[in-house]
Every structure is written in C-alpha cells, then in structure tokens.
Computed example of a mutant assay.
Amino acid sequence: MIENKLIKNLIVINLIFLSLILFTKVTFLYRLLLVLLKSIISPVVVSVFFYYLIRPLNVIFIKKGLKNSEAAVLTLFIWTFALTGIFYYFSNSISYELNGLIKEIKTIGEKDNNINKALDEINKYIDINQIYRVSTESLNNYMKDAVSNLLKGFKYLMDSFSKFLLILITIFYLLKDGEKFKEGFINFFSNKNKEKVSKILEGSHVVLSQYVVGQSKVALSLSTLIFLGYKIIGMPNGLLFSSITFILAFIPFVGFFISMIVPTIIAISLGFTMFIKLAATFIIVQTLKGRVVVPAIMGHTMKIHPLTDIFLVIGAIAFGGPLAAFIIVPIYGIIKIIIDVLLPDKIKKKLSM
C-alpha cells in the first residue's frame, strides 16, 4: 500500500516537472511568468522579508491592547521613519566615500603597480581594447537615443514607485490580517488535510521568522565588525565598503566573500602592507563570524548542513541571481517541513534506520 502511494507521488512529481518544461516552451506564457516574477513576485518576497523583520514590534503593540489595524499603521510608521532617518544620516557620508572610490579607481590605472601587471596578464586572454571600443560605441548609441532613454527612465521611476507602494500595502495587510490569511488558506482544504496544512504553515512561519531576523542580525554584526577592522587598519571608504557588506551578507556564505572583492583591489593599489592588513582583518572577521556570530545568532535553527547551504546558494546564484540566493535557504527549509509532514511515518522510520 505504501509502495503504491510512493509510486503515485513520484508519478505526480514527474508530471509536474514535465508540465513545467512544456510551460517554458510556450513563449507567451513564459513571458507572462517573467513579467509576474518581476512585477509581483519580487515585491512580495521583499514584503515578506520586511514583514518578519518588523513583526516583533507589531506583536508588542497588539499585546498592549491596540487593534490590528492601529498596530500595523504604527509599526509601519515607526520603521519607515527609522529607515528614512538612517538612510539620510549615512547617505551623505556614503556619497562622499563613493566619489572618493571612483577617483581612487581612476588613479589605479595610472600607477605602475600590481594592478597594471594583472591587467597585462588578463589582456593576453581578453582583448581589453576591443571591450573599450564596444563600450564606447554602446555609449554613443545610448546618447543618440537620449529622448527614448528619458522616457525609459520615467517609466522606470513609475515602476519603482508602484513596486514601493505595493510593498507597503502588502506589509500593512500582512501585519493586519496575517492570521486571517492563514485561516482562510487552511479552509480551502478538507477536514482530513487541515491539520497537516496547519502544521506546514506553522513550521514555515517559524523557519521564515528565524531566517529573516537571524540573517539580519548576522548581516548587521558582520558589517559592524568589518567597519571596525577598516578603521583600525586605516582602510579608506570604510563606511561604504561595510554598507556593501551589510547588503551582501544576506546571501549566506558567499555574500561576505563577494563584498571583499573591491576592497581587496583598493588594498593592492595602496601597497603590500595594506593588502596584508586587509587579509588579516578578513581572516579575523570570518573566524568570528563562523565561531561566534552565526552560532550565537542562528544556532541550529535551520537544521541544514553548511555544505548543503553552500551548494544551494551557489546553484541559486547560477540560476536566479542574488534574489534566488537569498530565498533558497528558507525555501529548502520549508520543503523539508512539507516532506516531513506529508511523508508517512512508516517510510520515516525506514529512512531513519
């Protein structure tokens, strides 16, 4: 009986994959899916991230006796005000450092140092002059279409505003009616399956909450540590580089390494001593991250082996870019919960043996 159910489930899974493959062959539907992914799914992912980030404050307001709608509005107002203040406070310093970084990158090419040697080595395999010519031609074509580009810029601005508005509205209704959405979704299923669906939703809620809050704390801790390291060794543009680290640290494992690429290039241009200082700072911060920060904040909440994490993130980057790399770990955790709930107990016992 169990074997027959297993075979049926495998057949269903294969049919789903076959349907997805056929779906990608239908150009109109495939383009429609891409539009939905860009216009709706991506903002919803961002909304869910911020929802779990600000939800603890919303829960406090509800416990204090505020209505759900009042708590949601107050929570959104406080977080929007706080994020706007943080952005305004750091934007001037980051802009100043960004201008300094651009000047530094321009001067790197004029120096007779290791960067030029590296570029000469790269030039043996890649025709940099050809790339420059193509880039110049592309720039000229871009300037010729200035009016068209202006319209595209306006369209991009309107698109960004609509997505921002969609994100705010989605967060508001998630804070206000999160429990109602859950109950309404469960009611779509028969009484026989309601308990299983409820377990899946509860488990998924815990995974997403732990991942978003935990990863945010890790990113903040990591960027703070690397900023202090930059200040100690005298690395220029420390605030800008640590801000980039904060953003990329939301991508598990590889994000921190990617954020160190530009600082490494700058350190090489400043001399061998600065490069050694930066390498030592990176090793110390990476060690603290692996031995102290991540275990203390994340612990073993996701119950995923680090090697599995690495393969998931690298594969996600290859197929879907940074957004996919950010969401792949919680998706994997949710899939594990679904399998654990739906898999018969007898099969679980056999697998655990």
Rank of each mutant, 00 (worst) to 15 (best):
M1R: 10
I11N: 02
F17A: 14
L20I: 11
L20V: 06
K25G: 12
V26I: 15
V26G: 12
I41A: 08
S47F: 00
F50E: 08
V59G: 07
K64C: 12
K64Y: 05
G65H: 03
S69F: 03
E70G: 08
T75N: 01
L76Y: 03
T80I: 13
A82L: 12
I86L: 08
Y88K: 14
Y89L: 11
F90L: 09
S95D: 13
S95W: 05
L98D: 09
G100N: 11
I102G: 13
I102Y: 11
I105P: 11
I105R: 08
K106T: 15
I115D: 08
K117W: 10
K117V: 12
Q130V: 12
I131V: 06
Y132D: 15
S135E: 10
N141M: 11
D145G: 09
S148I: 07
L151N: 15
Y156T: 15
L157P: 13
L157Y: 11
M158F: 13
S162E: 09
K163S: 11
Y173K: 03
L174G: 04
L174D: 04
E179C: 09
E179M: 09
E179T: 10
K180W: 09
K180Q: 13
K180Y: 10
E183Y: 03
G184H: 02
F185A: 03
N187W: 07
K192I: 14
K194Y: 01
K194G: 04
S198G: 05
I200V: 01
L201S: 04
S204K: 01
Q210M: 11
V212T: 02
G214W: 06
V218R: 07
I226L: 13
F227D: 02
P236L: 04
L240P: 10
S242P: 07
S243E: 01
I244E: 06
L248Q: 01
F250E: 12
G255W: 07
G255K: 02
S259T: 05
T264P: 14
I265M: 04
A267Q: 07
G271Q: 00
M274Y: 13
Q286T: 05
L288S: 07
V293S: 04
V293K: 03
V294I: 07
P295S: 06
I297H: 00
T301R: 14
M302R: 01
K303L: 07
H305R: 01
L307K: 07
T308P: 05
D309M: 15
V313N: 03
I317D: 02
P322F: 14
P322L: 15
I327L: 01
I327H: 03
I328E: 08
Y332A: 01
Y332M: 03
I335K: 03
I339H: 10
V341N: 02
V341E: 13
D345I: 08
K349T: 06
